[in-house]
Structures are given as C-alpha cells and as structure tokens.
C-alpha cells in the first residue's frame, strides 16, 4: 500500500496461491482427499495388503514332498498347532513372559513417570529425565542384546557383582530373557504413562490429600483411575512387542524358545509359509482378547 510499485507483483502471486486455497476452502471433500490420499495408499496397499496375504496363506498348505505351496483352503495348519503339545507349551510360556515383562515395566515406569511429571519442578530437569528414559532407543537392537548377554552370561557382569555376597546370577535363560525384554521395552511404557500423569492436574492430587486421603489412598482413588488408559497404552506396547520378539531370546535365552521363534523357524528353516502364517494368528488373538477384557472393565469409558 505504501509502495505502489511493488504492489501489483505481490498481489498477483498472492492471488494465485490464494485462489487454490479458497477453492479448497469451498470443497472440503477435496481437501480431505488431498490430506489422506498418500497415507491411505500406504496403509491399504502395503499394510493391509500384506496382512491379508498372510492371513489367507494361513489356510493354504505345502506339498510335503516338493515343498511347493498348495493354494487350496484347509485347516490343517491350525490342526497342527492346536494338537501339538510343544506349541501350547511355548505359547503359554510366551504369554507368561509378556505378562511378567509388562508388570516389571509397570512397576518401574509408575514411580519414574511420577517423579518426572509431578515431583520435579524444574522444566529443564524434567525434559532431561524424559530424554534419559528414551536413551536406550538410540542404540541398535543387537548392541543392546549383546550388552545384555555380557551382563547375564556365566561369570558375566552380574555374577561378578553378586560374587562378594556369595550369590550367583540367573545366567542365560528364561529369567535373563524376561529382564532383557523389560529393559528393552521400558521406554514404551514410561512415555505414555508420563504423558498420562502430566495430564492429571496437580490440584486433583492436592484436593485428595486435603480431603483426608493418605498418599496410598490418593494413588488408588485418584491417580490410578485417571492414568489407567495410559497404563493400558503402555502395556499394549510391552505386551505385543514381547509376543513378537524372537531375537533377544536367541541371544540371552539359552535354549528357551518363544512363540515368534516358531513363526520364524516355520518360515525360514522349514520353509512352511502357511504354518508360519497360521501361527501368527496367536499374538493377534491374544491382543484382541486383551483389549476386549480391558474394555469390559469400563476403564476406557472416560476416554
């Protein structure tokens, strides 16, 4: 307005981009299509496509002589899995490991997240704590796996630390697998729980104490019900990541097998894609059952 010489060029270039904007403004469906076409394409083709192929493959079989795929619908893979005792043992063991890993992470994450969200007053220190929690995510999986191995291996770091007390560590095996996985997935529990706690106004905790509730009553009566959705979110991470893991158990588990090893071995060693695909139903069913159970408690009604 002040400089008339520059006005025509600026208003012309603005006019072009703003006419696109105003066209989109008048056509909300087109706008939505513009926003979602790329992610939807990605999701449908790559994710749902591959998932469908896998689920369909579960009903195929392989020719026992040539090993070639037989694309005729059959329930034989499920029959093999449900009648083989070893599958049941490994499935229940994997379920147990997932539950224990989740519980360990819950016990560690709640005080950690509470300290970061409610006790620390300095914002800098709070961010430093949260970043410190995510630090294990920066290192590669295998690096952490072999680091855990040096901790738990016979005469390893843990044995060395316990030696003065006359004790010995658990060595490689089931316990080492549980502890290593709990260590590995801890950030995935801490972050949602921290976010959940940060959303609880401090005045609610103060009000509870003000009304006469002791610290443990406040924890059970106010904090826990309010962060429950965050605990569920965190536990879905730790639970499903554990169900799907097959590498850590190979590094620190000794002879222990987890369910994902069955899937991996059926596919990679036995070259039996249909059996692997059928076995993959197990973690999916477990997670669906878990979510249904959570929904039944009514804990997610306030979301």
């Amino acid at each position: 307005m002040v400089a008339p010489t520059t006005q025509p060029t600026t208003s012309a270039s603005r006019g072009r981009s703003s006419s696109v904007s105003s066209y989109l403004y008048r056509h909300p469906r087109l706008r939505l299509a513009g926003l979602l076409s790329a992610p939807m394409l990605w999701l449908v083709v790559l994710y749902l496509g591959s998932l469908t192929i896998m689920l369909v493959a579960a009903f195929w079989s392989t020719d026992s002589f040539t090993g070639a795929l037989v694309k005729k619908p059959t329930l034989s893979n499920f029959h093999t899995l449900l009648t083989g005792q070893v599958y049941w043992v490994v499935a229940l063991r994997t379920l147990g490991i997932a539950v224990l890993v989740t519980l360990i992470d819950l016990v560690l994450a709640i005080p950690l997240a509470f300290t970061a969200a409610k006790v620390v007053r300095s914002r800098r220190l709070r961010y430093a704590l949260v970043i410190a929690v995510t630090m294990p995510l920066w290192a590669g999986y295998l690096v952490k796996g072999y680091a855990m191995q040096t901790m738990f291996i016979n005469n390893g770091v843990i044995d060395w630390m316990l030696a003065p007390l006359g004790l010995k560590g658990p060595g490689l095996g089931l316990a080492a697998t549980i502890f290593s996985l709990a260590y590995l997935w801890l950030p995935y529990m801490v972050l949602p729980v921290y976010a959940g706690m940060e959303r609880v106004p401090s005045s609610l905790l103060e009000a509870s104490g003000d009304l006469g509730a002791s610290t443990s009553q406040t924890f059970r009566g106010v904090l826990l019900p309010m962060i429950f959705p965050a605990l569920i979110a965190g536990s879905i991470f730790t639970f499903s990541l554990t169900l799907g893991d097959y590498i850590m158990v190979k590094i620190v588990g000794g002879t222990t097998q987890m369910f994902a090893n069955i899937i991996y071995d059926s596919f990679g060693v036995a070259n039996n894609l249909p059996l692997a695909a059928a076995a993959a139903f197990f973690p999916i069913i477990v997670i669906i059952c878990y979510l249904l159970a959570v929904r039944r408690t009514g804990a997610l009604d306030n979301l």
Binding site: P201, S203, L204, E206, A207, S208, G209, D210, L211, G212, A213, S214, V222, P225, M226, N302
Partner: peptide, 18 residues
C-alpha cells in the same frame, strides 16, 4: 494436608472427573 482439619476450595475446583 490429610492430617490437618482444614479443607480447600480450589481455583480450578479440582473435582475428580472420573
């Protein structure tokens, strides 16, 4: 606070939403 015979009305009311 839970051992003091006082009660508080908070600025944001601090009602328990659940």
């Amino acid at each position: 606070p839970f051992q003091r015979d006082v009660n508080t009305v908070f600025q944001d009311y601090a009602l328990f939403p659940h």
